[in-house]
């Protein structure tokens, strides 16, 4: 079974960042880490706007919207 990723989060759901898809370029992965998506960090999905628009996430006290292609490359550990 594939690991849950950032795109799978429902509104108001929280999770911890686990790791990144190997296909993500190092430069881009580093940017995600710099923005707060680093291993063990908690992320929260704020909004999943309609029509496939980028989802909105809160991480390290800041709000980012990330598109489907990119969000699905960040794997999560979902607490039950």
């Amino acid at each position: 079974m594939a690991a849950p990723n950032l795109w799978n989060l429902r509104e108001n759901q929280k999770a911890l960042v686990k790791d990144f898809c190997p296909s993500l370029l190092t430069q881009h992965r580093n940017r995600f880490i710099e923005l707060g998506f680093r291993q063990g960090e908690s992320v929260k999905c704020i909004k999943t706007p309609p029509f496939g628009a980028p989802h909105v996430f809160e991480v390290s006290n800041t709000v980012f919207s990330i598109s489907r292609e990119d969000a699905s490359k960040i794997f999560l550990l979902i607490e039950q």
């Binding site: 881009h28 940017r31 995600f32 923005l35 980028p54 909105v56 800041t62 709000v63 980012f64 919207s65 990330i66 598109s67 292609e69 990119d70």
Partner: peptide, 8 residues
């Protein structure tokens, strides 16, 4: 291509 990340 590069990722789409936009701060709100």
């Amino acid at each position: 291509d590069a990722p789409f990340i936009l701060e709100l």
